[in-house]
Write a protein that binds this DNA or RNA. Structure first.
Length: 123
DNA sequence: AGTCTGACTAGTA
DNA sequence: CTACTAGCCAGAC
């Protein structure tokens, strides 16, 4: 599969509700229980492969977003819970993941490769 | 208006 | 293997 010219270039940078952030939330909400994905995977699925940071920034906003966004299912490329610090307090993120059947050791998702859910492929 | 930072990633040394 | 750099876009100062 060659890279499609899917460029999310908004004319005049319009702040549509369908903006990058909204798309991120939409994808994250569709993450199956017991699965996790990465920021880059989401960004790539939206056509902005290099904007992985924006996904994380969107997550920072997700705190005031409704319905609640399962940001705990979003980890970095290494399967590391980099955003756990922003989850209220303590290992709330880890607790949520373990509750879904995901094993975490030292803030790292075990069997991450098998738990990984790629929105660009599965979606 | 310019500069720095940030829940990232891939590439290079 | 680890360390550093560059690219990315938006927000805060």
């Amino acid at each position: 599969m060659k890279k499609a010219p899917l460029k999310k270039v908004m004319p005049s940078g319009k702040t549509d509700k369908e903006s990058f952030f909204a798309q991120v939330y939409d994808v994250v909400r569709q993450i199956p229980k017991g699965r996790v994905t990465s920021y880059g995977a989401i960004a790539a699925a939206l056509g902005t492969r290099g904007s992985s940071r924006m996904v994380g920034w969107a997550m920072n906003n997700c705190h005031h977003i409704r319905p609640r966004v399962p940001a705990h299912r979003v980890v970095n490329r290494q399967g590391l819970l980099t955003g756990k610090a922003h989850f209220g307090d303590r290992g709330q993120m880890q607790l949520l993941l373990e509750k879904e059947g995901i094993h975490i050791v030292d803030d790292q998702v075990q069997d991450f490769k098998n738990r990984f859910w790629d929105p660009a492929s599965e979606l």
